[in-house]
Design a protein around this nucleic acid. Structure first.
Length: 855
DNA sequence: ATAGGGTTAG
C-alpha cells in the first residue's frame, strides 16, 4: 500500500475514524483524534456529541455543541438531532429551548428526526405544552414523533390526552408501533378505559403483534387494571412460552382480581415450567398467599425466598411483613422487618398495618408509630390510616386526635381513606359528635364514609339516626354495599323495626348482596330481635351451604332468646355434626337456651363439655347462664353452692341473675345479699333497688319497700320509666303506663274495657300482688289494667290485620299480672302475641307462654 | 417498551 493514499487533510477519513471509535464505545480515542483533527467538520462534531450521549450521559454533548457554534460551524439535521438527544438525556430545559430557537431559524422543523428530537426532549423535561406545540408545528409525523409526545403526556399523568391523540393518529397515515401501543395500553389501564383498551388490542392483532411478548404483558396488565381477568388470561394463554414478566403480569392480575388461589397456582405452574421467579413475582405471590389466608403456602414461598436470597429486597420483604401481620403472626412479621438492612416507609407501614386488633403494650401501634418518627421517617397517609386504626381498636381517642392534628398539618385531610379512618376512630371512641362534624363537612361522601357513620350511629344505640343516614345516602345516589346493609340491619335489630328490616332485606336481595356472610348473620339477628323467628329460620335455611360460625351462633342465640330451647340445642347438634368447631359465643347461646327452657341436665352436660370436650375456658357469662338455670328450677341451694365454688368472681350480671331468681322464689335473705353486692359494684344501678323493693312488696313488707325507695332518692337514682311500643305499617307507637296521649287513645281504652269484660268472664282475677304499690287492692287492680304493654297490645288489636301475630316491645321486665292477662287474651282473641321484654321474647299462644312463666 | 410491596366500613 503506498503512502499517497493517506491524505491527512481529508476530513472524511478523520470522520470515519472518529465514527468507528464512537461506535466501538471508545469515546476516549474518538475525543483524542477529534482534538488533533485539522479542520473539524459538522460530521465529526455530530459523531462526538452522539458518542457523549452514549458514553457519559450527554453533558459533554451540550458543551461540544456550544463549542461548535463558537467555531461557526453550521448545524445540520444530524447534529441537531444528536444534541437534542443530549438535551433529553440531561433533562436540560433551557438548552432545549436554545436548540429549539436554532431549529426554527434554520428551518429544520420539517426534518422528522429533528422535530421528533425536540418533542422528545421537551417531553422528557416535563414541558408537555411545548412538546405539543412543536408536534403540531411539524408538517409531518412519524411513529417516533408520535411516541415522544404520547410519552410526554403519559409521564405528566395526562392519560386522557394520550387517548385523544391516539384517536387522532389512528385516523391518519402514521404507522403504529408496538411502542405506541404499549404506552396507550398503559394509559387505558390506569384510566380503567376498557373500551379503548379493546380497540388497541384489536389494532395489535391487525398489525400482527398478537404474539409479541412485551405487548402481551401490556395487554394482560391493561385487562387486569380494567378488572377483566378473563380477557387477560385469554391473552396470556395464547403465548406459548411466556417470560417472567408475562407470568408475573398474569399472577398479579389474578391477585388484583382477588382470584388468589389461581394466582398461587399460576406461580407454582411457572416454577414447574422452569421459569425462575424474580423479586416482582415473589412480592406478588406473597401478597396473594396472605390474602388467601394460606399460611402454609406463604411460609413455603418464604422458604424459597430465603433459598434464592431475595429476603433483602424491600418489596419482597415488605410483602412478607404484610403477610405475617395479616395472619396475626406479629413475631414473624417483626422478624421479617428486622431482617431488612434498610427498612423504608412501606416496611414501617406494613408493620403498623397489623397492630390493630391486639391489646396490651407489646401490640400497640402507637409505639411503632412513635418509634418510626424517632427514626426519622416521615409518616404518609398509609401510616396515618394504620395508626388511626390502632387507636380505634384501643379506644385511644386522645392519641387519635393528636394524629388528626398531624394529618391536618400534613395537609392530607382531603384523602378519602384518611377521612374515613378518622370518622371511624371518633365514632368508635365515644366521640360520635366529632365524627359527625367531619362527616357533614365532607364534599364527597363515598360508600365507605356513609357506612362508617352509619355503623357509628348503630354502635352507639342510635338506630334511628343510622337509618336516617341510610335514606340520605340513597337520596344522594350512593349505592350501599354488603357492609352498609349489615350495619343498617343491625340498626333495625337495635330499634326492633321489623318493617324497615324487611325493606332493607329486599333491597339487599335486589342488590345481589343478601348472601354475604355478614348480611346473612345480620338478617338472622334482625329477624330474631324483631320477633320474627320464622323469617330468621328461612334466611338460615337458605344459607345452608355457606354458614360461618357467626351465623350458627346467631341462630342458636336467637332460638334461645325466644325460649325455644330444643330448637337451639338441635341447631347446636347440627353444627357439631357438620364438623364446625364451636366457640365461647356458641356456648353462651346453648347455656342460655338451657336456662330459658329449664333444661337442667342438658345445661350441666354442656357446661361440663365446654372445658372437657372443646377446650374452652368458661367465662363469667357462662357461669351467669348456669346461675340463671339453677335459679329457674328453684334450686337456690345449689345456686349458692355454685356461686361459692366457681372460679370466677361474680360480677353485676351474676348478682342481678341471683336477685331475679330470688324474686321468683321469694328468698329475701339471699336477695338482700345480692342487692348489697350489686350496689357495692354500682351504687347507681336502678334495677338492684327495683328488684329488691319488688321482692319486699311481694311479701307485703312495705316499710322495707319505702326504705329502699328512700335510699334510691338519697343516691339520686331514678327508675327508668317503663314504656312499650309497637310498630304498625312502619311507624312506631310508644306508650307509657296510663298513657292518654295517643291520637286513638279513646279506641284503645274502649278495647281495654272490652277485654276486661271478656277476661272477667274467663275468670281472670287481677293479682294485686303484682302492683308493687302500697295502696288499696282496688287501686292496685286498676293500675294494672293500664300498663304500657297492655296499651300497646290493645292498639295492635285495633289496627292490625286479623290472624297476624302482634309484636310488642318493652324496655323493662314484663309485669307478672300482664303476663297472666296476655296469656288469656291470646286465647280469647285467638291471636299470637310476641312480647319482648328486657330479658327475652315471650310467645303467647292459646292461653300459654313459651317462657313457661319463668323469666 | 412490559410485571411488584403499604390504606378505609360489618
Amino acid at each position: 500500500m503506498s503512502k499517497e493514499y493517506v491524505n491527512l487533510d481529508d476530513s472524511h477519513l478523520w470522520d470515519s475514524f472518529i465514527n468507528m471509535y464512537v461506535k466501538c464505545g471508545s469515546f476516549f480515542y474518538a475525543r483524542k483524534l477529534f482534538d488533533v483533527m485539522p479542520r473539524r467538520d459538522v460530521v465529526a462534531w455530530t459523531a462526538l456529541i452522539a458518542g457523549s450521549v452514549r458514553e457519559m450521559g450527554g453533558k459533554d454533548g451540550l458543551f461540544l455543541f456550544s463549542d461548535m457554534r463558537r467555531e461557526s460551524v453550521c448545524p445540520n439535521g444530524f447534529v441537531l438531532s444528536a444534541v437534542l438527544k443530549a438535551c433529553a438525556a440531561c433533562l436540560d430545559r433551557r438548552f432545549t429551548s436554545q436548540v429549539h430557537a436554532e431549529v426554527i431559524k434554520l428551518g429544520f422543523l420539517c426534518d422528522l428526526f429533528v422535530g421528533s428530537g425536540l418533542v422528545d426532549a421537551y417531553s422528557k423535561c416535563g414541558e408537555v405544552g411545548l412538546a405539543k406545540r412543536v408536534f403540531f408545528d411539524m408538517p409531518d409525523h412519524n411513529s417516533v414523533s408520535l411516541n415522544a409526545l404520547l410519552n410526554g403526556y403519559a409521564s405528566s399523568g395526562d392519560e386522557r390526552e394520550v387517548l385523544e391523540l391516539f384517536r387522532v393518529i389512528t385516523e391518519s397515515e402514521v404507522r403504529l408501533s408496538k411502542f405506541t401501543l404499549s404506552t396507550v395500553l398503559k394509559c387505558c389501564g390506569s384510566l380503567g378505559a376498557m373500551k379503548e383498551g379493546r380497540v388497541v388490542h384489536g389494532l395489535a392483532i391487525k398489525i400482527g403483534l398478537e404474539l409479541d411478548m412485551v405487548l402481551s404483558s401490556c395487554l394482560v396488565d391493561m385487562y387486569s387494571k380494567c378488572g377483566d381477568s378473563d380477557s387477560a388470561n385469554g391473552v396470556f394463554e395464547r403465548i406459548r412460552r411466556p417470560d417472567v414478566v408475562l407470568w408475573t403480569s398474569m399472577i398479579s392480575c389474578f391477585d388484583r382480581g382477588r382470584r388468589f388461589w389461581e394466582a398461587c397456582k399460576l406461580f407454582m405452574n411457572m416454577c414447574s415450567m422452569g421459569i425462575m421467579p424474580n423479586e416482582f413475582t415473589l412480592a406478588t405471590v406473597v401478597s396473594s398467599a396472605s390474602e388467601l389466608g394460606d399460611l402454609v403456602f406463604g411460609k413455603s414461598v418464604h422458604g424459597y425466598i430465603l433459598k434464592q436470597g431475595f429476603e433483602k429486597d424491600n418489596s419482597v420483604a415488605n410483602s412478607l411483613i404484610m403477610m405475617y401481620m395479616s395472619f396475626g403472626a406479629v413475631e414473624d412479621g417483626c422478624k421479617a422487618f428486622d431482617a431488612l438492612d434498610d427498612q423504608d416507609t412501606i416496611s414501617w407501614n406494613a408493620l403498623l398495618s397489623g397492630f390493630h386488633n391486639g391489646e396490651g403494650n407489646s401490640k400497640d401501634g402507637r409505639k411503632i408509630f412513635v418509634k418510626m418518627l424517632d427514626r426519622g421517617f416521615k409518616p404518609n397517609k398509609y401510616t396515618f390510616i394504620s395508626v388511626l386504626r390502632s387507636c380505634t381498636s384501643l379506644g385511644a381517642v386522645d392519641f387519635g386526635s393528636q394524629i388528626h392534628t398531624h394529618i391536618v398539618k400534613n395537609d392530607i385531610q382531603r384523602d378519602e381513606f384518611v377521612t374515613t379512618a378518622l370518622i371511624d376512630m371518633y365514632a368508635k371512641c365515644n366521640s360520635l359528635q366529632s365524627a359527625v362534624l367531619i362527616f357533614e363537612k365532607l364534599n364527597l361522601r363515598d360508600v365507605f364514609a356513609w357506612t362508617v357513620i352509619i355503623s357509628g350511629y348503630t354502635q352507639t344505640d342510635k338506630g334511628e339516626d343510622a337509618l336516617k343516614c341510610f335514606r340520605r345516602m340513597h337520596h344522594e345516589g350512593i349505592k350501599p354495599n354488603e357492609f352498609t346493609f349489615a350495619s343498617c340491619l343491625s340498626a333495625c335489630s337495635s330499634i326492633s323495626s321489623l318493617e324497615t328490616g324487611r325493606q332493607i332485606h329486599s333491597r339487599a336481595i335486589k342488590a345481589g348482596l343478601s348472601h354475604d356472610a355478614f348480611v346473612e348473620s345480620a338478617l338472622v339477628d334482625m329477624y330474631t330481635k324483631c320477633g320474627c323467628l320464622e323469617d330468621a329460620e328461612v334466611v338460615f335455611g337458605i344459607s345452608a351451604w355457606s354458614r360461618d360460625l357467626v351465623l350458627w351462633n346467631t341462630m342458636i342465640c336467637g332460638y334461645s332468646h325466644h325460649g325455644y330451647g330444643e330448637k337451639s340445642l338441635a341447631t347446636f347438634q347440627n353444627l357439631i355434626d357438620k364438623g364446625v368447631k364451636p366457640d365461647e359465643v356458641t356456648f353462651v347461646g346453648v347455656l342460655s337456651a338451657c336456662s330459658h327452657a329449664g333444661l337442667i341436665d342438658d345445661g350441666w352436660r354442656h357446661f361440663n363439655s365446654l372445658r372437657d370436650v372443646y377446650g374452652i375456658t368458661p367465662t363469667i357469662v357462662h357461669h351467669a347462664c348456669m346461675v340463671d338455670l339453677l335459679g329457674r328450677v328453684g334450686d337456690l341451694n345449689h345456686m349458692e353452692q355454685f356461686l361459692t365454688e366457681m372460679n370466677v368472681v361474680p360480677d353485676a350480671l351474676i348478682w342481678q341473675t341471683v336477685l331475679g331468681a330470688c324474686r321468683v322464689h321469694g328468698n329475701i335473705k339471699l336477695a338482700e345479699r345480692a342487692a348489697d353486692k350489686l350496689l357495692e359494684l354500682d351504687p347507681h344501678m336502678d334495677s338492684a333497688y327495683i328488684l329488691l323493693s319488688n321482692i319486699y312488696a311481694l311479701k307485703g313488707r312495705w316499710h322495707d319497700v319505702a326504705r329502699v325507695r328512700r335510699s334510691m332518692t338519697h343516691q339520686g337514682v331514678k327508675k327508668e320509666p317503663g314504656c312499650s311500643w309497637i310498630e304498625v305499617d312502619g311507624d312506631v307507637h310508644v306508650f307509657v303506663s296510663k298513657d292518654g296521649s295517643h291520637p286513638r287513645a279513646h279506641d284503645i281504652y274502649h278495647k281495654l274495657e272490652e277485654l276486661r269484660e271478656k277476661l272477667d268472664l274467663a275468670g281472670y282475677v287481677p293479682n294485686a300482688g303484682h302492683a308493687l304499690l302500697d295502696v288499696s287492692d282496688d287501686e292496685k287492680r286498676e293500675s294494672l289494667l293500664y300498663h304500657s304493654e297492655r296499651l300497646a297490645l290493645a292498639y295492635g288489636l285495633i289496627c292490625s290485620k286479623p290472624n297476624k301475630p302482634i309484636r310488642v316491645f318493652k324496655n323493662l321486665r314484663t309485669c307478672g299480672d300482664c303476663h297472666e292477662a296476655i296469656k288469656l287474651i291470646s286465647k280469647i282473641e285467638e291471636r299470637e302475641f310476641i312480647v319482648r321484654d328486657v330479658s327475652r321474647f315471650h310467645h303467647f299462644r292459646n292461653g300459654s307462654c313459651s317462657c313457661q312463666d319463668y323469666w
